[in-house]
């Protein structure tokens, strides 16, 4: 996982910085000076990182910060990671379709019922509390504008 993620990232930066350099060549000098001054060394360093990874895949270099826990490994970790991605993708889709207020209630209720396997009463009360907090702080107090979802638009609500 460690070397695979590193390789994907390194290769991604090679592609992005390469494309950035090619695009920048068409701009006037004032606009391209800085992107090229940064893009070229980044491209070279990314190439070095990819080659290092390919030639010495066993070499590890840990960053001095947060690390993913190793409590779940192999297939279980991959399955749970995909599940996390699915929750976030689902929440994003719900926000666009239903708008923030409904999507928040739906996420909290579904997450507690399906992922947390909590009962209906606990899930319902917790959902109500979270939604009330969201409504009070962000809507009533801060008056932040949250647009309605697409579904409300289709239904003419």
């Amino acid at each position: 996982m460690h070397s695979k993620a590193s390789l994907i990232l390194g290769a991604g930066i090679v592609l992005v910085s390469g494309a950035a350099i090619v695009i920048a060549l068409d701009w006037p000098l004032k606009a391209r000076l800085f992107p090229l001054a940064i893009g070229i060394p980044v491209f070279c360093m990314a190439m070095a990182e990819v080659l290092w990874g390919l030639l010495d895949p066993a070499a590890r270099s840990e960053a001095m910060e947060f690390r993913l826990s190793d409590e779940a490994q192999g297939g279980v970790a991959v399955r749970r990671t995909l599940l996390a991605v699915a929750w976030m993708a689902g929440f994003s889709a719900a926000i666009v379709l239903l708008g923030f207020p409904s999507a928040i209630a739906l996420l909290v209720l579904c997450y507690l019922r399906l992922q947390g396997r909590e009962g209906w009463i606990v899930s319902g009360i917790f959902t109500l509390v979270v939604w009330a907090l969201f409504y009070t702080v962000f809507d009533r107090l801060l008056h932040l504008p949250f647009p309605a979802g697409l579904v409300q638009g289709w239904l003419g609500l």
């Binding site: 940064i38 980044v42 360093m45 070499a59 270099s61 840990e62 960053a63 001095m64």
Partner: peptide
């Protein structure tokens, strides 16, 4: 130079810093 270990860590540190500068453009 300080946020990762060894020469490879330093390469990654500068690469990450450079990527941040690129994204800022």
């Amino acid at each position: 130079s300080l946020s990762a270990q060894g020469a490879r860590g330093m390469l990654r540190g500068f690469l990450a810093g450079g990527l941040g500068l690129m994204v800022a453009t």
